[in-house]
Computed example of a mutant assay.
Amino acid sequence: MSDQETEFAEFTAVAERFIALANEIKSEGKPLPLVNAALMSASATYSTYVAAGNQGYLKPSGVDRLVDAYRAQLANIQEIKRKAAESSGQKTTKEQ
């Protein structure tokens, strides 16, 4: 396995742990919008910490860079889901 494949496998495993925790919280009866908002807030808090340290904060340009990174990740996930839906014969989309 290449270093890139190993890194992707680790990335996937960590992401799956976050999803499992979110699903566990959902199964405790918490509403999906609450779980989603809390997960997004935690991600924003941690992203700020990674970029600026524990006592720091982001200037608007830093916020823009994080929004762009999130947008790219979201687009990547949607492309993966689109391909999976098409390969299974699904054509369902939902735009918000």
Rank of each mutant, 00 (worst) to 15 (best):
S43A: 10
V35L: 06
N76C: 01
A75M: 15
R17F: 06
R82V: 01
F11C: 01
E7P: 01
G56M: 03
V63G: 01
A38G: 02
R17C: 13
S27Y: 10
E79I: 14
Q78Y: 15
E16N: 13
E24Q: 03
G56P: 03
R17D: 14
K30Y: 11
Q78K: 15
Q90K: 10
K26R: 11
R65P: 06
G53M: 01
N54Q: 12
G29D: 03
S47L: 12
A44C: 06
A84F: 00
L66A: 02
R65Q: 10
D68F: 12
E10Q: 12
S41K: 08
T12Y: 08
G56F: 05
A15H: 05
F8T: 03
L21Y: 14
D64C: 07
S88N: 11
K59Q: 10
F8W: 11
A72V: 04
R71F: 06
A52Q: 01
L39Y: 02
V14M: 09
G62P: 07
L34W: 00
K59N: 06
E86K: 06
S27F: 05
I77P: 01
L39V: 08
K59Y: 07
L32D: 07
Y70H: 08
Q73N: 11
Q55W: 03
S61Q: 14
E79P: 04
Y49K: 07
F8P: 00
K30C: 00
P31C: 03
F11S: 08
T45W: 14
N36K: 02
A69R: 14
D68C: 10
Y49V: 06
G53S: 02
R17Q: 15
G62D: 00
I25L: 13
T12W: 10
T45C: 13
F11Y: 12
V35I: 04
Q73W: 11
Y57V: 04
I19P: 02
S61V: 15
D68Q: 13
V14Y: 02
L34N: 01
P31R: 11
I25M: 06
E79C: 09
T93G: 00
N36L: 07
A42E: 15
K94R: 12
G56T: 01
S47R: 11
Y46T: 10
A69V: 09
T45I: 15
G56Y: 05
L66G: 08
T48I: 10
N54P: 07
K59I: 08
G62F: 00
A37M: 05
R82S: 06
